[in-house]
Structures are given as C-alpha cells and as structure tokens.
Amino acid sequence: MLVRYLLAALAAGLFVGVLMTPIHYLKLVPLIEHAEVYEQGGHGIAPTHEHQASLVSSAYAHGLSNHQAGRVILVHGPAAAGGEEEGDASLFESRALGTLTANLVTGAGFALMLGAVALLTGHRITLRTGALWGLAGFAAISLAPALGLPPELPAMPVADLSTRQIWWIMTVVMTAAGLYCLVLRRQPVVRAGGALLLVVPHLFAAPHPADLSSPIPPTLAAEFAVASLATGALFWVLLGLSLGAAMDRYVGAEA
C-alpha cells in the first residue's frame, strides 16, 4: 500500500519535527539570539573591543547606544527593510511558532525523501535498520556540506547566498549518490566510484568571502557549529528510527 507508505513517512517526519523544536530551543536558538545581539549592535566595531566583552550575557550590555552608532549592517536585508512588525516578515507573530512550523515542514520533507530513497532502491526501513538510514542521511545532509560550509550564525561573513546553496546541493547530491554506491551496491567498480563521489565535492572549494572578519566571537561560532552538528545527528537518528517504526507498524512487515 503505497499511500500508507507515504502517510507513514509523513507521520514519522511530523513527529520528529515536533520533537526537535524544544531541543532547538534548548541548545541552538539561544546561540542564534546571542549572535543577533552582535548582528544588530556590533557590526563594524573593532574586533578587539568585542572580544574584550565577556561571552555570555554581558554582550547584551552592548546595545545600539554603546556603539557610537557605528556602521550597522543588517544582514537580514528584507527583514530589516521593515515588514509588518519589528521589521520581521515572518508568517507568525511568535518565533517559536515559526520554528515549530519550519521543523514540521523540514521533518516531513526529509522523511519523505529518505522514504523515497528506500523505496526507489528497493530497501525497507525498519526499526532495526532505521538508525543506519538516519546516519546516512546525517552524513549526506549535515556532515558533508558542513565540511565546506560550517553551520553559520547570523552576522558571520559569508559568500553569495546562491553560490553557497548550489555548492551545498551539489555536495549533498554527490554524497548521497556516493553512499548509495558504496553501501548498497556490490560491484567493486561501483563502490570505487562511490568513494570517489564522496571526495569530489571537497575538491571544489566551497564559496567563502574574501574578508573573514566577523563581529561574532569565534568561541560562539565554534559552539554553534558543534551544537548544530550534534543536533543534526540526533534529528537524523530519530528520523530514521521513527521511519522504521512507522513502516513496521503501518506498512506490511515484509519488503
């Protein structure tokens, strides 16, 4: 029953999306909000000054007033240009509601895609193999692109958005194809090709800006990059397990 298959994947994705929202709020959103303090107030200030400040809450003392109205570059172009409320064009009043919605949509999307890959390659995701499928998703969609484009905070120096998105998508597609050839195929030639596919994206340098100076303290950026990858790993393992459980329960037991 393929409709049941799709619904099971959808349910697993939505479930994990709900589950991830408090985890994001525990570990990631505070770091993003912290970075936004630097984004709104601290850009263009001599880095030494910023680094003197203690890392944590004293950053909030660096309000706009503190900075002799320094050169403020709002990285959120469209948002800062003035939307409905506080220059925010978000679909929801509440930031948490937006995060929850985005998590639901992202979870459902990745669940459908992971389920689709299993269906197209003729494999079944079960509770027993779910974590492995999830880890493969993590490798392709979090880990490999993070090697070239580490998870970034607002206000960090970045290259052109579209160029980065193209590099990201290229890396994800090649890593996923490489993993497929390496793990699910038997022929040595195909496996060698798969290993090559894993390496190739990293031979093309990911787009980086010429000027790397950043208002974000490096410690904050490092903390966020690690937290983002760890949260990503958790998301993918949970997604794989939920997909497996949903398949076991709602779709026939045998592939």
């Binding site: 948002a79 937006g98 895609m113 580490p150 958005l161 998301f235």
Partner: peptide
Amino acid sequence: VWGAGFAHSAALHDTAHDVRHAFGFPCH
C-alpha cells in the same frame, strides 16, 4: 525542504530563520 530551507522569499526566510541556521542550510 526547499520551502523551509532554501526559498529566497522574505516571509519564508524569517519564519524558518532559526531552523535554517540550526540545520546548517546556507542562510542570508
């Protein structure tokens, strides 16, 4: 995933902002 993570629309960007950063999608 495109809608939540990649679309250039300001409304979608601002709604999904924290999630985009959390997943390490290229943002801004």
